[in-house]
Write a protein that binds this DNA or RNA. Structure first.
Lengths: 211, 211
DNA sequence: GTCTATAGTAGGATAGAC
DNA sequence: GTCTATCCTACTATAGAC
């Protein structure tokens, strides 16, 4: 059945959630999936291959769930707020630190690295679209490299996810701190026409010297 | 000898660098340290315990190496520049992704979690001092929770480290993007007395409503 | 496609000689 | 303190019955 392949994908994620990437073996995965251990190799050839497939498939699922929310984000603060809701909800379902686990495992496993890079790119693309849209009329757009900034945001988010695993309260405070920073950017935006024009002028100057 | 305990600490790091946290076994560690495998258990009781000790000891070493540099940082941009130099140099010595590896392993291992939290706190404290010093005269200080912001910065840094493992060019671009953001903050700082006063006023207002 | 059985390997941990 | 030898467990992967 095609059902078994799917169960193995789900089982792989469950095993990573429960035991970390290090403890996700053919046996723990099969147990979590409720299928026979040999089927891992029959359907996917190796544990690594299954993990890579699970990483991509799961990320595709989650991104598509949040895709509409990303589309409705109107400014940086809302993006941060979405990030926070996403963090909270996905964590409750245990879907969060999984990507971070894959990322860690990818450091020493090329096959996993390829899949993880692709999975992260799915999130980054969503953020990129938001930035392009929300920064369209901002001086920031002139100075910022949007895809690069999107990558930085994704990476930072993953870092805070990992941080949460060792210091939950600290991670919560970190999100608060980013809220404060976003609030500051908002204040800059509301400074009034004179200051805004001055800032825009400076930014344009800097942007020129960069080219 | 006390020498053997040290060799095991070094071997543990070497093993994590080479094989990731998942591949750091008593055997690979002992091989990297050039000592007998049984000594892991004689000196540290278990592999986890050795890894925890290695994480703390190594972080203490690295932090003390960079401590003077942290002390000479005068503004946010210099902090970012230090972060970049730190990233480059430590990575060349392979000392970088180690903390990220520990952090990933810590997600499913309480003993490792404790040590990793403490190790990360060593870096965070350094950053906290820098922020407190450099933001002393900035409107930012009123609005920002300095320890929380330091935590966010540490976590984000670790995230970019992990990101580098799957997409080196992307990580490089992420640093560039953060440079651009720091540049923007600098521009805001240089806006001139009128705009600065306006911003300061707004910030004070916001800060009040928060209390 | 799915199962059992098993070969072969690697790892955690300990006992006991030196 | 350090070594060899070893036990036991868990893992990857495959062969072969059904």
């Amino acid at each position: 059945m095609a059902d078994t392949k799917q169960r193995l994908l789900d089982g792989a994620l469950l095993a990573v959630r429960r035991h970390g990437i290090a403890g996700a073996s053919a046996r723990t995965i099969a147990a979590a999936a409720g299928v026979n251990q040999a089927l891992v190799f029959y359907h996917y050839g190796s544990v690594d291959e299954l993990l890579a497939a699970a990483c991509l498939s799961a990320t595709r699922d989650r991104v598509s769930v949040w895709s509409n929310e990303f589309r409705s984000v109107a400014n940086l603060r809302e993006l941060l707020d979405l990030g926070r809701r996403l963090h909270a909800k996905e964590r409750r379902h245990g879907n969060v630190s999984v990507l971070a686990q894959f990322l860690a495992g990818a450091q020493t496993d090329p096959r996993l690295a390829e899949a993880t890079r692709a999975a992260l790119a799915l999130w980054t693309t969503e953020i990129e679209d938001v930035l392009r849209r929300t920064l369209a009329n901002s001086p920031l757009a002139q100075i910022a490299n949007i895809p690069a900034l999107a990558g930085a945001i994704s990476a930072a988010f993953v870092g805070i996810e990992l941080y949460e695993g060792v210091d939950a309260a600290g991670a919560q405070r970190a999100f608060d701190a980013l809220d404060e920073m976003a609030g500051l950017l908002e204040l800059v935006d509301e400074l009034g026409p004179i200051a805004t024009r001055a800032l825009r002028g400076k930014v344009t100057k800097v942007a020129k010297t960069r080219r």
